[in-house]
């Protein structure tokens, strides 16, 4: 069984985001981490491999700058067998569809895959798109934002939380998934895993970027919120709050 997991290097959620030239994030001094949702994807891939036993393998793939080696080593330390780093000279300008195009081409060449895992969202551009798009390009069904997964008899059954409801989905294998918090508890890399990761194969491939499908015309800090005010202290402030909500803000 061949399992593929897509991971991305992203700024830590606590990192201050500065804009460099009105168009891109300035990476200077920013701490980068493995995308939190991709941890769920990696964990699920590893569990499926362990359940399958035998010669099942987990391959991790990323498109990113050379520094993304660090995140791939983390994934290898967690237990993946091999990693592929697709690099190019201009990570900052990549949009979801161009990313999906490159990733799908590479996945296709190296396939076929039995199971494919993505995070539901990369917490940089917050696009929620690469997983379903890559799956579409590979001609695979994709169950997205899943919080439960069962695989049996050539079929995947998964659950996801939608607005005000819970949905159960089914698809035949091979199948792709995008992973939401709640699916599992990602493991930490053990010391042994970290040592082993150093000897695992990490292939680096230089790729050409397709033309961008989304052009960024401006990147800016969020507009400042209109200054707020403390209406008072304790229960005594409540009547003034309600008055302000009704008469000033008009939200009640």
């Amino acid at each position: 069984m061949k399992i593929l997991v897509f991971v991305k290097r992203v700024p830590a959620t606590t990192a201050r985001i500065r804009v460099a030239d009105g168009l891109r994030m300035d990476p200077e001094g920013v701490e980068f981490v493995l995308n939190p949702y991709d941890e769920f994807a990696v964990e699920e891939a590893l569990r499926r491999k362990e359940a399958a036993g035998g010669d099942a393998t987990v391959t991790a793939i990323t498109l990113g700058p050379p520094e993304a080696q660090k995140e791939l080593r983390t994934v290898l330390a967690m237990g993946a067998d091999e990693a592929i780093l697709l690099t190019h000279s201009d990570a900052a300008f990549l949009d979801a569809e161009a990313t999906a195009q490159v990733l799908a081409e590479q996945a296709e060449q190296r396939g076929p895959w039995d199971l494919v895992f993505f995070g539901k969202q990369a917490v940089d551009r917050d696009q929620h798109g690469v997983g379903p798009s890559v799956a579409t390009r590979l001609g695979m069904p994709c169950l997205s934002e899943i919080v439960e997964l069962e695989i049996a008899d050539g079929k995947a059954t998964a659950r996801r939380e939608v607005e005000g409801a819970s949905e159960t989905l089914e698809a035949p294998l091979p199948c792709a998934f995008t992973c939401q918090k709640g699916l599992n508890e990602p493991r930490y890399a053990s010391l042994k895993g970290i040592m082993a990761a150093k000897r695992k194969p990490l292939e680096t491939v230089q790729v050409d970027l397709p033309p961008a499908k989304v052009e960024v015309v401006e990147l800016a800090p969020p507009p400042p919120r209109p200054p707020g005010r403390i209406v008072g202290e304790g229960a005594a402030a409540v009547p003034e709050l309600v008055r302000a909500l009704r008469e000033e803000a008009k939200v009640l």
Binding site: E97, A100, Q127, H128, G129, P132, S133, T136, E145, V162
Partner: peptide, 24 residues
């Protein structure tokens, strides 16, 4: 809509139409 279902569809539709998408 940028709902769970909508987010699931946007990338697929863009892929099928060979175009880009703007999310959320």
């Amino acid at each position: 809509a940028a709902t769970v279902r909508g987010r699931d569809l946007q990338g697929r539709i863009a892929a099928l139409l060979d175009t880009g998408f703007a999310s959320d």
